[in-house]
């Protein structure tokens, strides 16, 4: 490290760098801070449940919260799976772990809308799960929300 050679005694290396920083939804400065990202637009407050819950109990909670899906998380908020409406409307005695969709596709909060929205348009999906680098849930990015944001900013999100 050149700084040590120049006489600096305490030099540390944040090797994971700013990619790691931004992927944890930590604040940044500079021109990029003005661009809209998945974490800015994702809907927060997504209902969550645990692996061992009964679907019927989860459904009541999801409906009360005004959502039509639920994310399955562990005690740290790390995403394990997803319950879509079809499953939520199924057998109320089913256990979440047995019927959940495992490992849903995710994106990081730092992903720019200009990048992610065309990709989910191409895949014809309506939502994508937004998680931090360590897998913790941030929210759900709706394609329609992202498209609206991009249109409002003239395509320069």
């Amino acid at each position: 490290m050149r700084l040590e050679a120049l006489g600096f005694r305490e030099v540390y290396d944040y090797a994971a760098g700013k990619v790691d920083w931004a992927a944890m939804a930590l604040p940044v400065e500079g021109k990029a801070a003005e661009r809209r990202r998945a974490g800015d637009v994702a809907r927060k407050g997504v209902p969550t449940c645990r692996l061992d819950e009964a679907v019927g109990d989860v459904r009541s909670r999801v409906e009360a919260a005004g959502w039509n899906l639920c994310m399955v998380t562990d005690d740290s908020g790390v995403v394990l799976g997803r319950l879509r409406q079809r499953v939520l409307n199924g057998n109320p005695d089913d256990i979440v772990e047995q019927v959940m969709e495992e490992g849903p596709t995710t994106t990081r909060p730092s992903t720019e809308l200009d990048y992610i929205i065309p990709r989910i348009q191409k895949r014809k999906v309506g939502t994508i799960v937004v998680t931090k680098l360590n897998g913790q849930l941030v929210g759900i990015l709706y394609r329609s929300d992202g498209e609206r944001e991009m249109a409002d900013s003239g395509g320069n999100s």
């Binding site: 490290m1 050149r2 700084l3 120049l6 006489g7 600096f8 005694r9 305490e10 030099v11 540390y12 290396d13 944040y14 090797a15 994971a16 760098g17 700013k18 990619v19 790691d20 920083w21």
Partner: peptide, 23 residues
């Protein structure tokens, strides 16, 4: 551009944390 002249803006008595994109 890092050399003795450019590094002079730093305080040698305080810790320095360097980073780039992702190592």
């Amino acid at each position: 551009k890092l050399n003795a002249e450019t590094a002079a803006i730093l305080d040698r008595e305080r810790p320095v944390v360097v980073y780039c994109n992702d190592g």
